[in-house]
Structure formats: C-alpha cells, structure tokens
C-alpha cells in the first residue's frame, strides 16, 4: 500500500481543536489530528511538547478543556479510561514501563486479556486452551516466552517495556498507543522493538511517540510534529525531516542543551 492510498483511507481517530490548560498553562493548544486506519502514526517533538498529554486526552486520563476526539466517528471526549479501553478498544503503553511488578510475566499478560474486565466475567474466567494459546502467542511476540514465570520486577528495563507492549496486545485493541516504547533500550533491542511494531501494524493501527530519529524512520508511515502544545508540521518522514521549521525547533533544542 502506498503512502497516498493510506492517507486517503478513513479516519480511526479524528481530533479537532483540542485544547487543555493546567491552571492557565496550555499544554495542548488547538490541535487537529487525523489518524488513518492501519497506519503507524508517529508523533515527535521536543521534551515538554505535549505528546504524552495528548495521549492522556485520548485515553481519558485527562479531560480536555475544549475540542473533540472522535473514534471512528463516535465522540469519546471526556469518557472514563476504563470505557475507552474496553468499549472503544484503545490500548496504551505508558512512557516508562508501567506494569504489575510483583506478579509474573504470565499473570501480567493474562490480566490484560480483553473481554474479561467486568466482575461477572472475571469470576467466570477459566484459562481454557484458547486463552492459553493467545497468552503464549503474545509472549512469543514480545520475546518473553521463556520468562513467563519470572516476576515482572525481575526483568531488565527493555524487557519490561516489551512486557507492557504485550499487555497492550493482549487487550486486543484496535488502536494501539505506544509512548516512547524504545526509551532506554540498547540498539539491538530498539531494532527488535521496531520490527515488533511493524508486525503489529499488520493488524492494528498505531500511534507511536518517539525521539530516536533512526527508529522513527524505521517504522513511520506518517509523522506529526508537536511543539509547545501546537502542531508544527505533518507528513511522511522524508518530508518532515527536511521541513525548515522542524529543523529549527530541533536545532534550537540541541543548542539549548549545549548552552546548559
């Protein structure tokens, strides 16, 4: 599928005029965003640009001050996280591993399995062949099959990131949000993560937040750049990386760092 075809597809997520302010500070300011079905949509931007906050708004963690978020045309603005996860099937991996530490890898994935989240369904849940197969499939996908019985707290940092990706996969979401999935990983791990994401994109739509440009190039179908809560640019990676405004923001950022 070429880029043009992808972009002309229908929206899985449509965001219009989204704004949120924290006691006067506008962390997200009048943002429009279209995520097309089946694409890997990467969001980049300097630290504090508002990337994670935007995901907080989509997943119901934070309530928007203004604007609309539509999931396949249905308004999900301001809905509770549990509803957005279980009814609209949006799964999210947080920035930095956010797992259940004193539970085994297997239990982490099992708890995440979609479709058993009400009390009644949880009571009646049995680990049948179907569930076992699904869990094992996920464990293999995230390279943690052999670590199934280890406690999440005993894993290395990169493996914990994978575990959380696995939890998101186990939810069987239709839209997957990954907030800096490769942060703190070795080069090999980062590359593996990229391949994992591409594999996922065969069946899911993904929004990925990332800093590492090599990694972005590896995975991105489409890129949106955020800066100080506003959308700065968007387009295929090859276009965005040559965008003057984008280069300026990133160069300025680098100069700031040198200045420190």
């Amino acid at each position: 599928m070429s880029m043009e075809e992808l972009r002309s597809g229908s929206d899985i997520l449509t965001i219009r005029g989204l704004t949120v302010s924290f006691s006067g500070f506008r962390a997200i300011s009048d943002v429009d965003l279209d995520v097309k079905e089946g694409e890997i949509h990467v969001i980049i931007g300097p630290n504090g640009a508002g990337k994670s906050t935007l995901m907080d708004l989509i997943t119901g963690k934070t309530k928007a001050t203004e604007g609309d978020i539509l999931f396949r045309g249905q308004d999900i603005t301001g809905k509770a996280p549990g509803v957005i996860a279980s009814k609209y099937h949006i799964g999210r991996k947080f920035q930095g591993p956010n797992v259940f530490d004193n539970m085994t890898v297997y239990e982490n994935i099992e708890i995440a399995l979609g479709g058993f989240t009400s009390i009644r369904k949880a009571f009646c849940y049995r680990r049948k062949a179907e569930q076992k197969q699904k869990i094992e499939e996920v464990l293999k996908q995230i390279n943690l099959y052999e670590q199934a019985d280890m406690m999440a707290s005993e894993l290395a940092h990169g493996q914990r990131q994978w575990l959380e990706i696995g939890m998101v996969i186990a939810q069987s979401p239709e839209l997957i949000i990954l907030d800096e999935p490769a942060a703190g990983m070795t080069d090999t791990e980062t590359f593996k993560t990229g391949e994992m994401i591409k594999e996922l994109a065969k069946e899911h739509t993904l929004i990925v937040i990332e800093h590492d440009m090599e990694f972005v190039e590896q995975i991105a179908d489409y890129v949106t750049v955020l800066h100080q809560g506003r959308k700065l640019a968007e387009g295929p990676f090859s276009e965005v990386k040559n965008n003057r405004k984008v280069i300026q923001v990133y160069l300025k950022d680098d100069m700031d760092e040198e200045g420190d």
Binding site: P81, G82, G91, N98, V99, N102, I111, T117, M167
Partner: peptide, 10 residues
Amino acid sequence: ENEARLGFLG
C-alpha cells in the same frame, strides 16, 4: 500493584 494501570486495561 498498580491501580492506575488497571483502568487503562478496561
């Protein structure tokens, strides 16, 4: 272990 995370699992 992590109550906040649970909400995002539905």
